[in-house]
Amino acid sequence: MNNFESFLNSKTPLKYILLFAIIYAIYTNGKEYYHFNLYTVYGIAECTEIDIQNTNTYAAYKFYVDGKRINGSIQLGSIVYPGWVGKHFKVQYSSKDPEINNLLLSKPVYDTVRIKKAGFVIKVQEKKEKRNQFRD
């Protein structure tokens, strides 16, 4: 019991926790860096919602890889535009693990043929008939 008490009283546990936190941070950032540099694929995603949690703002999005729906989210900075919801953007993801992805809000996609090929259904808005003041 003496060894355990001396271990807890020393600063060694703090060192192990700090070392573990550093290794975990390097692993998670290195994993994304590795996948984006070696297995990058681009696709099209649709922004589904913008959510504010505490002081952070997130954009949720979805995209399809081989018919499977992948959900993702990205933290937004100070620039938030509510009109992004329902719009399509380019998405960068790993071909080995599509759960590693990044929405590119600076690259909107307007080509409806490419959007349909990406697995999305485009809703057609009905045109309103213009009022003709001379017609009865």
Score class of each variant (00 low, 15 high):
G43A: 11
G67I: 08
I50L: 04
C47P: 00
D66F: 05
A60W: 09
C47N: 08
K90S: 13
G72H: 12
K68H: 11
K87L: 13
L76K: 03
Y34S: 13
A60G: 09
Y64P: 02
L38E: 14
I79F: 14
S95C: 09
A60E: 09
A59L: 15
I50F: 03
I79W: 07
A45E: 05
T40W: 00
Y39G: 01
V91A: 06
Y64I: 09
T48K: 14
A59I: 15
Y58L: 04
Y42E: 11
A59E: 04
S95E: 14
V65P: 01
H35L: 15
A45Q: 06
G43M: 06
Y39D: 10
V80G: 11
R69W: 05
W84G: 00
K87F: 05
V65H: 04
N71V: 09
Q53I: 11
H35A: 13
T55H: 07
V80W: 11
G67E: 07
G72D: 09
P82W: 01
H88D: 01
Y42G: 03
I70Q: 14
I74W: 00
E46Y: 02
V80F: 11
V85Y: 01
Y34D: 14
I74R: 07
F63N: 04
Q92I: 04
S95I: 10
I100M: 10
K90D: 08
Y33R: 12
D51M: 07
D97P: 02
Y39V: 02
A59P: 02
R69E: 15
T48V: 14
G67S: 09
A45I: 06
E49K: 12
H88A: 04
G77Q: 08
K87T: 12
G83E: 08
Y39R: 01
K96S: 10
Y58T: 02
K90P: 00
E99C: 06
V65W: 01
S78A: 12
Y34I: 15
Q75F: 01
Y34W: 15
A60Q: 11
F89E: 09
P98D: 08
Y61K: 09
L76H: 04
P82A: 01
D66E: 13
I50M: 04
Y64D: 01
L38I: 10
G83P: 02
K87I: 06
G83I: 03
P98V: 08
L38H: 15
C47E: 05
P82Q: 06
T48M: 11
Y81I: 14
T57Y: 00
I74L: 10
I44P: 04
T40Y: 03
D66R: 08
S73N: 08
H88E: 02
L38F: 14
Y39W: 10
Y34A: 09
Y39C: 02
H35V: 02
W84N: 04
I70A: 07
A59V: 15
N71C: 08
